[in-house]
Design a protein around this nucleic acid. Structure first.
Lengths: 219, 219
DNA sequence: CCGGATCCCCAGGGATACTG
DNA sequence: CAGTATCCCTGGGGATCCGG
């Protein structure tokens, strides 16, 4: 991106992260921790391969990601965030929260991947019963799995199947998203192909997080 | 900006605010509250007038700003943020904080305007002596003034001269920025043309804010 | 098959001139 | 002052191709 030439923190930051696709690449790496070129490409439908290569070069140069050439036999490079790149998390958080209302409109043909849920889940949900023993909910849709752990008041979400889930939620990606993020009732969701099995208390333990941190600051 | 076509809050938000210049326009309106076309143009050196016009149309359409046609005789339109636009503040905050280290390098020729300090001051500084009576520091540089009020632990910063400042800081914009944001000593700053007069305790009352809110959340 | 590089085309951005 | 109109150019989208 062409530089803004303004001595302002916002402008300087946008010189680095304001390019198209850059923050979405950061999203992928925040979720996957480490990814190959093709993994990134799969998680970023619509990106041209030359652009992805270009961005990866730029982001390495600006210190956001690091490239690792894996063991010689496979010759497969992987990418991961540096500490500076991890520090983008609050930015993605605020932008994602701001964009959440835009997800409401249902009738669009945008693609959906389950792992895009991982960050929003951690950002917007909390553990409703902190004193209960820790539980794990597995979410499964379209060949992707998410493992959501509720423990001691916190919610952590990582990609991949859970080892011993206390419950499993599965169904069409869009519907699963609505159920988890927008609190659509399970009863309603079932009518659209969502399945739930296991301990019924697990899903109920996920609650919208009070926006305490932000609200407190503004007050 | 071309749509990302991804059912993800981050992507949907970037469809709306990811265009070049959009967040910088929001910065101007957060600082000025209300501005005319030319005011925005002055605060955004480098923007082409057709692009500014285009962005203002886009942002009005997406509900971020509203346009007001002022009293008929003058026929001058003004722009201001809607509630939805004001909600961008945390985004600018996080991006600005992330970009702060990029401001350190001094030898660049980027332009600088005093009012770009207003948001960073509120985001990064606090009132070191909350119990003291409220005080006002006026900052002046290159024809612009900023009024910084310290009261009850909080710091507020608005554009324009203060009515009865307890102290006045003035000098080259870059140097004034360094003094306020990076805590450069006044002694050093004086050697580069910075002037300070009035109650010496006023400036000392401004202190870097503990990053409590963010740190607490991550912990 | 993975990890790109190359090529072509078009839309969006930049600079400037001009108008109500 | 508040934009439009115009022209040019770069950066992004899409497809294909290539070395390991």
């Amino acid at each position: 991106m062409r530089s803004y030439e303004q001595h302002c923190g916002l402008a300087k930051a946008l010189n680095v992260i304001g390019d198209r696709w850059t923050l979405l690449i950061a999203r992928e790496l925040l979720v996957w921790k480490r990814a190959r070129f093709s993994d990134l490409r799969n998680g970023l439908p619509g990106i041209a391969s030359n652009l992805l290569a270009q961005r990866l070069r730029d982001m390495e140069e600006t210190g956001i990601i690091s490239r690792r050439s894996a063991a010689p036999p496979v010759a497969t490079a992987t990418y991961e965030l540096t500490a500076r790149g991890e520090a983008l998390r609050p930015i993605l958080r605020e932008i994602g929260l701001w964009g959440a209302p835009l997800l409401a409109r249902t009738g669009d043909d945008a693609s959906a991947q389950l792992h895009w849920l991982a960050l929003p889940i951690e950002f917007t949900l909390c553990d409703a019963t902190p004193d209960a023993p820790s539980m794990t909910l597995e979410v499964s849709s379209d060949g992707e799995q998410l493992s959501i752990e509720m423990d001691n008041g916190f919610v952590r979400c990582v990609v991949g199947a859970a080892e011993h889930p206390d419950a499993v939620l599965s169904g069409p990606t869009r519907k699963v998203m609505q159920t988890l993020l927008h609190g659509e009732s399970l009863t309603l969701a079932r009518k659209h192909g969502v399945r739930y099995r296991g301990n019924p208390n697990v899903l109920a333990r996920l609650r919208p997080r009070a926006k305490s941190i932000l609200e407190k600051e503004k007050a």
